[in-house]
Design a protein around this nucleic acid. Sequence first.
DNA 1: CTATTGTACTAGTACATATAGTACGCATTA
DNA 2: TAATGCGTACTATATGTACTAGTACAATAG
Lengths: 146, 146
Amino acid sequence: MQFNLDQSSARPVYQQIIDSIKREIALGRISKGQKLPTVRRLAAQLIINPNTIAKAYRQLESEGIISTRPGSGAFVAQLNSTLSHAVRQKIITEKIELLAVDAIHMQIGRPTLQTWLSDTLDRFQFTTAEPDNDSQPNPTSENPND
Amino acid sequence: MQFNLDQSSARPVYQQIIDSIKREIALGRISKGQKLPTVRRLAAQLIINPNTIAKAYRQLESEGIISTRPGSGAFVAQLNSTLSHAVRQKIITEKIELLAVDAIHMQIGRPTLQTWLSDTLDRFQFTTAEPDNDSQPNPTSENPND
DNA sequence: CTATTGTACTAGTACATATAGTACGCATTA
DNA sequence: TAATGCGTACTATATGTACTAGTACAATAG
């Protein structure tokens, strides 16, 4: 697992870790049941304090993204939002609004914006996003425990 | 001008003011040359410190969104980004990526996301975003540089 | 058992946010 | 010209967050 931290960024380090892990999952590079680096190991790799990693893991677990077990480690959980559809729509729509405002002020036109969104979605695992699930072969060493 | 501040939000107040003004402009409710509320007046209306408004105006001016003149007030500037196309694409694409990651983790499908984006864009002044300009009688130098 | 893992504290430093008060320079207007 | 309103700049203070540092504990794996 490879992370690119930007210590000079205004975005907090623990938030950058959250972003990175969620991105890896969304890209399909790590999938359900797979083990994440340990708190201390990832902290040593990134040369930051273990508490910062622990904070990121704590929040990821509260969001249901990962599942942690003392003694074992942290594992990627199922892609299963606990929020209602209405709440999810509200959250996403608000983010879309902020995006639209920025795009307008940068004079990005509607077709351009839609093209960029489409190009971005192509790079993610967006075919399996909704409750349907196709059987994709997974040759990686998966850990089927629940 | 009407603002909805959420003091309990994690988003800083001065940032909420910036968001609101940019949103009003993007929605076409206030347009170029129009006068914004004064620092002290808006502070009194929102019952917050004038320094907080001043900070928001300062940043809006640094982004080229508004133009301030001591003695006169603050005015909406032209919709004219000083950034190069490549930089703007990078900024917007990064925001799109974060949106896509969140959408995937909330199990929002691709067509749904595209529909929501389309619906949002309908509510904004998105027809005049790119090359064409509106019919406002404003004979100042419109300069779509880069 | 020992080693590893996530978790939970405390303490301290640094920075951002917001308020409070004061003062300055510029523009408008009476 | 004088008064007023305007944005700006500055200091000081209080609060919350981010991050580091260190320690300790409970659960798991071997």
